[in-house]
Amino acid sequence: MRKRIDAAQLRQLLSDNMRIMIGGFMANGAPEGLIDQIIAAGTKNITLISTDTGTPEKGSGRLIHAKRIAKLYASHIGTNPETGAQMNSGELEVELVPQGTLAERIRSAGAGLGGVLSPTGLGTPIAEGKRIIQVEGQDYILEPPLRADLALIRGSVVDTKGNVLYKGTTQNFNPLMATAAKTVVVEAEQIVEAGELLPEHIHTPGIYVDYIYQREQTDA
């Protein structure tokens, strides 16, 4: 199966009103080349799932800056003044989710679970309106799974089967998002032949990855 796609093929996967997950933490490990393509394609009214909105110049925050996002799920928006400004003006709907809860909501979607029970947020505004379930005498908040139409992630080394290795701290939400969307595109920093990565060094099994994209010289 051929997994590599170019910018034109990538744009075929994009449409308005999509629900898109984008990996990265403060833009570290974010698929900047794929974000370039969303901006170039003019895709809008997106529901974005991303742990933070980076800055107006880096990471998923560039889509906020370009006013392509209608709804956002994130744990932290303080580093991108655009996010707060658009939230206050009513252009952008924001649901703040504790970071660990966001990770587990995405993981549980990919793992076929009906959500998770977390103690995080008990006694805070996060618990309001949610089901509280007691297990072994301890209260937990029922947090539903979170999935998307498209996940855009970045891998440091990707083999031709789509197996991914992430360097340094660039894993963050990328391996989780790879499991929780209908279509998954990895932006590869480096592509190698299948067999060059040791099986035990692979973080994301290739079966999760539908397409491999490499940032082109002509990108933004």
Binding site: F25, M26, A27, N28, G29, T51, T79, Q99, G100, L102, A103, E104, I106, R107, S118, P119, T120, S156, K167, G168, T169, T170, Q171, N172, F173, N174, P175, L176, H203
Partner: peptide, 29 residues
């Protein structure tokens, strides 16, 4: 490829290990 939770470049100590956000919050929670 190596940053802290504020997004600043850092160095890792000898014997350090990295992981994804679900593992990171399993350690925390």
């Amino acid at each position: 490829n190596l940053v802290n939770a504020g997004g600043q470049p850092i160095t890792a100590a000898i014997g350090a290990c990295s992981f994804n956000s679900a593992d990171s919050f399993a350690i925390i929670r």
